[in-house]
């Protein structure tokens, strides 16, 4: 029974995503303003203008686990940031705690540079593996956050409580922090330590807000539609239960 429900949900989401992506719109979709994303767009622009560096930390979510979705979303965001800052004097540095994600971050950055027409500026070591355990990753990423010229730390992906050390290091350097995580403990820590925290599924909205890819925007709209259907379903089921129906 559970598998049938899951299959129906996946099929519905797939059809909705395809329909919304391929639909011809007269005007682009308008989303509510999220302060953290406005700040991120501004930080990317400033990094190019003042020659500072962006540090993008994309967490430890292995692609072989359910947490890999956070890493995929962070890579999509990295693609957007990479394109916008590829012409900066100091290219963005990407740290991750999973080797496969680190390799993908290099590939993503290279694609962003190619897309911006500045392939010769790409440096393979801009995407690096910071550490294999949570705290070795945090310690290594803290070192990057403390480097000269890092003006903004973008911490988006799968983190645990160790993200608190990263925000602290960033704050000591007076750098801007944009942070989002899927883990509930990390979200609570980010709420207390980041100026503009992103909560819950806002992590998955990041590529749609920073770039203008129709698939990312459609994905966000599909999430909204499914969320409202889910809320409706929960109300109906609660009402049925209150009425004594099984």
């Amino acid at each position: 029974m559970n598998q049938i429900v899951a299959l129906a949900l996946v099929l519905f989401a797939a059809l909705l995503l395809l329909a919304l992506t391929l639909r011809k719109r007269k005007s682009p979709a308008v989303f509510r303003e999220i302060a953290a994303f406005a700040r991120l767009r501004r930080a990317a622009g400033l990094a190019v203008e003042d020659g500072s560096r962006l540090h993008v930390s994309i967490g430890r979510g292995s692609l072989l686990s359910p947490r890999g979705a956070a890493s995929l979303s962070a890579l999509a965001l990295l693609r957007q940031i990479g394109e916008q800052t590829s012409t900066s004097d100091r290219p963005p540095v990407v740290t991750s705690g999973d080797p496969a994600v680190a390799a993908l971050s290099q590939d993503t950055l290279q694609a962003a540079y190619q897309s911006a027409g500045v392939t010769e500026l790409f440096q393979p070591n801009s995407g690096r593996l910071a550490g294999l355990t949570p705290f070795s990753y945090a310690a290594s990423a803290m070192d990057v956050a403390r480097q000269d010229y890092v003006s903004t730390n973008v911490l988006v992906g799968d983190f645990g409580p160790e993200v608190g050390l990263l925000t602290e290091a960033s704050e000591r350097e007076s750098a801007t922090i944009i942070a989002a995580a899927t883990d509930s403990a990390a979200q609570a820590i980010l709420f207390a330590s980041a100026a503009e925290p992103l909560v819950g599924e806002e992590l998955f909205a990041a590529p749609a807000y920073v770039g203008a890819d129709p698939a990312h925007r459609a994905s966000l709209q599909a999430q909204d539609v499914m969320r409202w259907l889910l809320i409706l379903g929960l109300f109906v089921m609660a009402a049925l239960k209150m009425a004594g129906l099984p």
């Binding site: 797939a14 995503l17 956070a70 979303s73 693609r79 819950g200 992590l203 999430q223």
Partner: peptide
């Protein structure tokens, strides 16, 4: 629930090759 919906659509984007980090 919100994170699960986000993960689902992100996975589908990769499956349809809208996002291709690889």
């Amino acid at each position: 629930l919100g994170v699960a919906l986000g993960a689902l659509t992100t996975g589908l984007r990769a499956l349809f090759a809208f996002d291709r980090p690889f």
